[in-house]
Design a protein around this nucleic acid. Structure first.
Lengths: 343, 343
DNA sequence: CTGTTAGCGCTTTCAG
DNA sequence: CTGAAAGCGCTAACAG
């Protein structure tokens, strides 16, 4: 039923290839012919059929975004950056949420084959080698956001530095027993790579070392998903110890918020009895007055999108991996700007 | 370069239609032939080309989701529900974010024509009639989430009831001067329909009336986008009035949070000096201890997705619009469960 | 049960 | 500058 290129050609009294030419901004069309075609297109309300065009051009003008949780504010922020860039580039964006680990396998499996997108952005994890190979074989560029990966272009931040900054700040405030909670990211399989959480811990230990404070493994805990509940649980365990920490550095704001919540429940004054620092600077953080290490989340997404599109256009970019800066944002939760709240 | 159906046919020593048959679970294939084909597929690592299949079947197995802001936790939650359903239904999901009002026009323009998706879910606004007509003409079902719309199937909540519940609760706590802040949603053009904000206000006025309290227009304010900043601004204006309200009902949690923030800055004790109630029950709300009217956000998304897919399958569903229940969630922000926080 | 063939709607040589 | 024709890879009659 829909109007096709043939209808337009007929109406304009030209061949379909001519219509195709004006459609594709090909210059080899006489001005008069062009307007005639344009008029016909307008009159018939013609729009090219995407599938046909895709098949013919053997691409689909869409990039896929694989992310583990749409529930993570961090990942959603990255997604926003991606979306914005892609939209203005005129590309479609289809999202693939992993949620269950098994879906991860089958998804990547299909994705790497079926030409469901001609560029892929993977957020917050590193795909197995075999998938990467397959994508490469089909010339589908892959770029990773939030994880540094040697194998493909990636956009990430200096997590060691972030961990260092956070810990250093706490140290400067006089804390010596500082807990660290990292959210465990269930990697598909030890595909190596720089887990941000581990890197942040590296920075944490580095700062400790500089300050001459011995590293105490008992102060490092791994919580489950980056959720408030898990953060609260971890805080409970950490604070139940004999020599309880006076400060906690959490590898994500969600965890940190959980810590704050637990402390509040326990009647612990923040920051007087417990200082806390998070990571990410999601919107919630500013509301909660949480000191945190800010990552340029949207910007990470934007740059990842920019890189895939360039790769998709066949550009052979050389230095494609980019490390973005982090920044310590000081708020009430660790006392620096302590404000008397609610009396 | 990629392996096609011809390669498989050759390898298996059969015709392409046979391959196609096993691909499409057609039963008219001898078991032995089937396994032979399956083996060839496996051996060659064949996956059907999506574009070709789409062109041939004249559909694309993806549903589009049009949402105004990826920054809105509410909309993201709805998106989650949609994503989950679609994923398990084996459909792709492409998102179209509106952000700028002008993009809205051009987007819908293209969407309604180009067969970029064969089903559409519109979140939190109602498209212009002409777009709806075009979608209908191309047999692309449209369903709306969060807005009640007579013209197409929609999934929404009883906003009047929500507003009533919130206000009633405040009334019961003894408040008589209750402010209402609704976030202004910039509709493409007065396409009519039930704006949730207006409905909530209706419930608000209804509760007031029942309590015999005259409606004071000065107590109703329209803030900009549903952001904390705008909420804070609105609160400032509301509280600057001579007879300042002792309670504020905000049409969204984000606005409510802005109100709380402003109050905190002004040293106003919540809930003693100012009670506040929100709407939505986004994650932030529970952290902030905000009393609010909960909407089943994910469920709205899920049901919207379910409806489009059924419509896409040609089902002639009759009663497709659904109204979901709201629920008042009482927390500290209005005093009912007042907890001594931080001393 | 299975192979042949004609499209699906568009892009792209290749002649003119 | 423009038209004819050959695909792109797959599905779906239509004959066997």
């Amino acid at each position: 039923m829909p109007v096709t290129i043939y209808d337009v050609a007929n109406a304009a009294g030209v061949g379909i290839s001519t219509v195709s030419r004006v459609l594709n901004e090909n210059t080899n069309v006489r001005q008069e012919t062009r307007t005639r075609v344009l008029d016909a297109i307008e009159a018939l309300g013609y729009k090219p059929n995407i599938s046909a065009r895709n098949l013919s051009r053997s691409h689909i003008r869409t990039v896929g975004v694989v992310l583990s949780y749409l529930t993570s504010p961090f990942q959603v922020a990255v997604l926003q950056g991606i979306e914005r860039f892609l939209a203005q580039a005129g590309l479609d964006l289809t999202i693939f949420s992993l949620e269950s680990p098994k879906r991860r396998e089958t998804l990547l499996e299909n994705l790497s084959h079926g030409r469901r997108c001609d560029g892929l952005i993977v957020v917050s994890f590193t795909p197995q080698e075999r998938f990467l190979q397959r994508f490469q074989r089909y010339h589908i560029p892959v770029v990773i956001a939030d994880f540094a990966d040697e194998r493909v272009p990636s956009v990430f931040v200096d997590n060691v530095e972030g961990g260092y900054l956070a810990t250093k700040h706490l140290l400067r405030l006089g804390h010596t027993r500082i807990g660290y909670i990292l959210d465990h990211i269930d990697l598909p399989n030890g595909s190596g790579g720089n887990e941000p959480g581990a890197d942040r811990q590296r920075g944490y230990q580095q700062a400790l070392e500089e300050a001459g404070i011995p590293f105490d493994p008992k102060l490092v805990l791994e919580s489950g998903l980056h959720s408030r509940e898990k953060g609260a649980e971890a805080a409970a365990r950490l604070l139940a110890q004999a020599e309880r920490p006076t400060a906690i550095f959490a590898a994500s704001d969600m965890i940190a918020l959980g810590v704050m919540e637990y402390a509040r429940l326990q009647g612990l004054n923040i920051p007087k009895e417990l200082a806390v620092v998070g990571f990410d600077d999601i919107e919630l953080a500013s509301f909660a007055g949480l000191t945190t290490v800010r990552q340029p989340m949207q910007e990470m997404g934007r740059q990842a999108a920019e890189i895939v599109t360039r790769l998709m256009d066949g550009e052979k970019v050389v230095r494609t991996s980019r490390q973005l800066p982090v920044e310590l944002v000081i708020r009430e939760s660790c006392g620096a700007l302590l404000v008397a709240e609610r009396g």
